[in-house]
Design a protein around this nucleic acid. Sequence first.
DNA 1: CGGTTTTGACCTGCGC
DNA 2: GCGCAGGTCAAAACCG
Length: 426
Amino acid sequence: MLSYATNNFNSLQMHFIALMQERNQRNGSLQWHEAMHEKMGDKRNEHEDAIVPRRFLNLGLAPLADEASHSPTEGGSQDRSISPPNNVEVMSMDYNVEENYNSKEAVPIDGERSDGRDVRVTFREESPGKVSQSWIPNKAANSSPSKSSDQQSQEATIRKARVSVRARSEAPMITDGCQWRKYGQKMAKGNPCPRAYYRCTMAAGCPVRKQVQRCAEDRSVLITTYEGKHSHPLPPAAMATASTTSAAANMLLSGSMSSTDGLMNSSFLAKTELPGSSSLSPISAAAPFPTVTLDLAHTPNVPFRRPSTQFQVPFPNGAAPVLGATPPTSLLLDFGQTFFNQSKLISGVQMSPGSDGSQLSHPKVQSIQPSSLADTVSAATAAITADPSFTAVLAAAITSIIGGGGSSRAAQTGNSNNNNSSENKI
DNA sequence: CGGTTTTGACCTGCGC
DNA sequence: GCGCAGGTCAAAACCG
């Protein structure tokens, strides 16, 4: 399994390099933001006053569940296996982008995956003063008299930070190590699949919630959106998602963060694309909340998810020209960049300083310096080749950012044990 | 029996 | 002000 993954890493890596080279040639001296202007019809100025976190993205990948083969919300039987086992197959993801990009049919329904994957990161800026109180626990978080407005604002931002995970899975929901209780279900406009609402039940009063919905365009894709920060210790199995959520929240506050913050130690590099289309994040696509989306399920039929798009982003102020321009900001992040950072190649591709947005085509779009791109790619190649297990790399990445994300308990009861045992097999 | 799911009602924000 | 949509509540049902 690992060797297969490694082979696919190499394939991905080579594809990545080729695309980057192609992109370099295509772009020439054209400033990326100028291209964005053209593509976006220069509407970006509407958002230029928004706060833009300019930091690396810090993302963790939660294992997926494959134990069932029914929709998470298609009525039917109740699935009480909150954190089912058998995540191993998913964690040992096949990262063969090129071979599988157009072979959606080749993805078996039984859970064995051969689909290529990428990681997508999107941001939606938060409209000031429009934070939904419904997400605030007990609806009292905004009334704490002992906290300054700044503190409250920060906390509200953290609560609103969202991490969306796209995963190709037949399971009702992805396994993330946490225990969830469903508290609602709604039909969302534009998607025939209902959206399910869950809240974390691992600790009383934990504000973390998540939404689960099938992708309207590809119902084999499960979109899980996490929101909030856990108020309790997490089992290792839950660390990935939790740290991701935390990172997303931190990102919102990163405008003033130093390079020593957790995000700078992130294991992923962010890259930009034009604001995503609604299909990018079907869950709450219209919400103004900042959202990070991890796309673990290539959906070949979606134009902007093709390799040529995914690999465009490492370029300065890179943008995927095929995208729409509805949400103000989105970032792309793919495994290639993950490899970069995992391989301690972060110096080769740097984010813009948080305090200086002048070089950004869009103030809310994170950019990556173009310096030493070729070297970085070469180094990435070596690093990727040297790394036999991307999953392990991801795990290490996640672990590396857990430091500030709460204590880690070696083991916890219940479902997390299943997850642990599963992940340990990787 | 306790915890979870279901599901209709309710609340809130937003656009017209 | 009204209607719509997203999100949450809470009582009833369900399940181990």
